[in-house]
């Protein structure tokens, strides 16, 4: 029951000093109604992947290979990368909506919040009357915990948390099947963050949309996601259920990420973290891109590129233990 199937997707940023392979050979499924967490360091290609799926890439970024297929509820398939013009406009927001990192910047500062819900409805549901649209705007805002009179507020008159709620309300406007959330809570303080996460989970239960939740905060992902995909240097290196990943990470990189968080209780301990810096994506290291930073790397790691291999409750791309990773 996949709603989105990404196969072998590659995205390059063309620059004077050579192409930057921001995303290469990514295959990923999004199941209907699930929350898929996408984690990785800055520059690992998670936002680029999301923008490629939403068809929001702009030059100098371009999709070089692969396919993205969207499956409707009736089973019919849509080749997202081939959509053009009006089909693409209809696909956007009706089927796939996006919540951006900072609602501070993703809301138009000179238009009221209500009007920003209204223009989506006006374009995609031209049959709705003005009153129906107003009613729907109020309903959506109230659903995310914003009072009806805030419809007339401008973004700068709302707090950070409220703005992000408003952005979520806008995303819900057309009952999309997929919502991509690109670091939706990164700019918020932890208390507000928690509220928003609870809200997202409740809304998912109610409306049944699938979520691609992007963040570099793995502990937050563990809490909210059903499944998690870990990206490194433009590739997916491990996928698995949140539980499995937490309990028994297979990729040394995942292990490193998990060890980067301090424990609240228990004895004081040294956090090993991950030494080194992410690779230059113009000329990634040969073999496994992670091997220069990997404490467990063997000679083979610098020679052959590990492929994503299906395991009991996930996938991993690591050469250790005959391709089963560290555990």
């Amino acid at each position: 029951m996949n709603v989105l199937e990404i196969r072998g997707l590659g995205v390059d940023y063309l620059s004077g000093s050579g192409a930057v392979h921001a995303v290469s050979g990514v295959s990923l499924d999004l199941r209907r109604g699930e929350i898929l967490g996408l984690a990785g360091e800055s520059g690992s290609g998670k936002s680029t992947l999301a923008n490629a799926v939403a068809r929001l890439l702009r030059p100098p970024a371009s999709i070089t290979s692969g396919s993205v297929v969207y499956r409707r509820q009736d089973g019919s398939a849509v080749d997202v990368l081939a959509l053009g013009g009006n089909e693409l406009r209809a696909f956007r927001w009706k089927e796939l909506a996006v919540v951006f990192q900072s609602a501070m910047n993703s809301l138009n500062p000179v238009i009221t919040v209500g009007a920003q819900i209204d223009d989506v409805l006006r374009v995609h549901a031209p049959r709705m009357s003005r009153n129906e649209r107003t009613e729907r705007s109020v309903e959506l805002l109230q659903r995310v915990g914003i009072s009806a009179d805030r419809r007339r507020s401008y973004p700068h008159e709302l707090s950070g948390g409220m703005r992000q709620r408003a952005a979520i309300a806008i995303a819900l406007a057309l009952n999309p099947e997929i919502i991509i959330m690109d670091e939706p809570t990164t700019a918020l303080d932890v208390v507000v963050q928690r509220d928003i996460l609870a809200e997202i989970r409740a809304l998912r239960e109610e409306y049944g949309f699938a979520v691609v939740f992007i963040t570099h905060d793995l502990s937050l992902l563990m809490e909210i996601s059903d499944r998690i995909a870990i990206m490194y240097a433009g590739r997916v290196v491990e996928t698995g259920t949140a539980k499995a990943l937490h309990r028994a990470p297979r990729h040394p990189y995942t292990l490193g990420l998990l060890r980067s968080f301090p424990r609240l209780r228990g004895p004081r301990e040294e956090l090993p973290g991950i030494p080194g810096v992410p690779p230059d994506l113009r000329s990634p290291p040969p073999g496994c891109a992670f091997h220069p930073r990997c404490a467990m790397a063997v000679a083979e790691c610098s020679e052959s590129l590990p492929v994503l291999r299906t395991e009991a409750d996930g996938e991993v791309a690591c050469l250790l233990n005959d391709g089963r990773g560290v555990s």
């Binding site: 696909f91 927001w93 951006f100 952005a167």
Partner: peptide, 25 residues
Amino acid sequence: EDYVVMAEAKGLTSRRVMWAYAARN
């Protein structure tokens, strides 16, 4: 700006994105 990208993602017509979101700001 993010709000222009978002306006595009919202599937608004190019004319509205260009004038009401980008040019207006």
